[in-house]
Amino acid sequence: MSARLIALRAILLREALRFTQQRSRFIAALVRPLVWLFVFAAGFRAALGLSITPPYQTYITYETYILPGLCGMICLFNGMQSSLSLVYDREMGAMRLLLTSPLPRWWLLFAKLIAGAVVAVLQCVAFLGIAAIYGIRLPLVGYLAILPAILIAALMLGALGLLLSSRIRQLENFAGVMNFVIFPVFFLSSALYPLWKMREAGPLLADLCALNPFTQAVELIRFAAYGQANLPALGWTVLAFVLFAALGVRGYDPGRGLTKSKG
């Protein structure tokens, strides 16, 4: 157990050092949700009406509604960025050294997921701070309850990235796959529009959004932001994490540090 904790600490420190040395990554992680919050939300505010639905007890602004979804956006992009770093490490040989250590392969990859999720939480904290300065604030209990929800969501999305990285062997192929995954996952969710709005557009569209694991992660964050537990969303998010992580770990060959996939 002590060896596993030492490995976890080393991986956390490595990811923290990489993150602090890549200031552009931190800025880019904040620019995307801030553009949605300050620019796009101003236009959608007049076009979209929002009814009183849980966890909200009164009418809210569109900026307030999309705040949890934008936290989910940060976790989604960070998960894809972490998976990109996995592909890069594999090509450079760092992943080969990591996976040939005597520690269990699943623990080493789980440590990578933990490190990426912690970075996502820090990015979300910075984003929520900027949003609070802008005037979009959560209840005090929400700032405490939202952190574990964001961590769980980040772990699930990081596991999705792990699964993708286990199927891609060349770095140049990853950008196209990222866009193919990110945009459907983000826009077919409740991050920007309530599910009842989606159902007005079409039952099939609403069903696709409801089945999207990212929707469950966003709803978990949304309820936690108001100090409420959404147990179904928690269950589906954890289940998606276990499934993605299991498939991702299986995709890595511990002997070569490469994937078994030919793609």
Rank of each mutant, 00 (worst) to 15 (best):
Q22V: 08
Q22R: 13
Q22P: 00
R23Q: 05
R23C: 00
S24D: 12
F26W: 13
F26T: 11
I27H: 01
I27E: 03
I27W: 07
A28W: 13
A29F: 02
L30D: 09
V31D: 05
R32Y: 14
R32E: 13
R32A: 15
P33N: 05
P33K: 03
P33Q: 04
V35R: 05
V35P: 06
V35L: 09
W36L: 05
L37H: 10
V39I: 08
G43Y: 02
F44H: 04
F44A: 14
G49F: 13
G49H: 15
L50C: 03
S51F: 07
I52Q: 06
T53Y: 05
T53K: 09
P54T: 08
Y56F: 14
Q57F: 10
T58Q: 15
Y59V: 09
Y59E: 14
Y59W: 12
I60A: 09
I60G: 04
I60D: 03
T61F: 11
Y62E: 10
T64A: 12
T64K: 11
T64F: 07
T64W: 07
Y65C: 00
Y65W: 09
L67T: 15
P68V: 11
P68N: 06
G69R: 01
L70Q: 12
L70F: 07
C71R: 04
G72W: 02
M73F: 15
I74P: 02
I74H: 00
I74D: 02
I74E: 00
I74W: 05
L76T: 02
N78Y: 01
N78C: 10
N78S: 13
G79E: 02
M80D: 01
S82V: 08
S82T: 14
S83K: 01
L84I: 09
L84K: 12
L86C: 07
V87W: 10
Y88P: 00
Y88G: 06
D89H: 01
E91H: 09
E91A: 11
M92V: 13
M95K: 04
M95P: 04
M95A: 15
L97C: 05
T100R: 12
S101T: 15
S101Y: 06
P102G: 06
P102C: 08
L103W: 03
L103E: 14
P104F: 02
R105P: 00
W107G: 01
L108K: 10
L109I: 12
L109E: 04
F110N: 08
A111G: 11
L113R: 00
L113P: 01
L113C: 10
V118T: 13
V118Y: 11
V118D: 08
V118C: 06
V119N: 13
V119R: 12
V119K: 10
A120H: 08
V121K: 06
L122T: 11
L122E: 12
Q123P: 07
Q123A: 14
C124F: 02
V125G: 02
A126N: 08
A126Y: 06
A126W: 12
A126G: 00
F127Q: 05
F127H: 04
F127R: 01
F127A: 00
F127E: 11
L128V: 05
L128F: 07
G129Y: 10
G129M: 13
A131Q: 03
A131P: 07
Y134G: 03
G135R: 10
I136G: 07
R137G: 07
R137N: 13
L140E: 13
G142P: 06
G142N: 06
G142R: 00
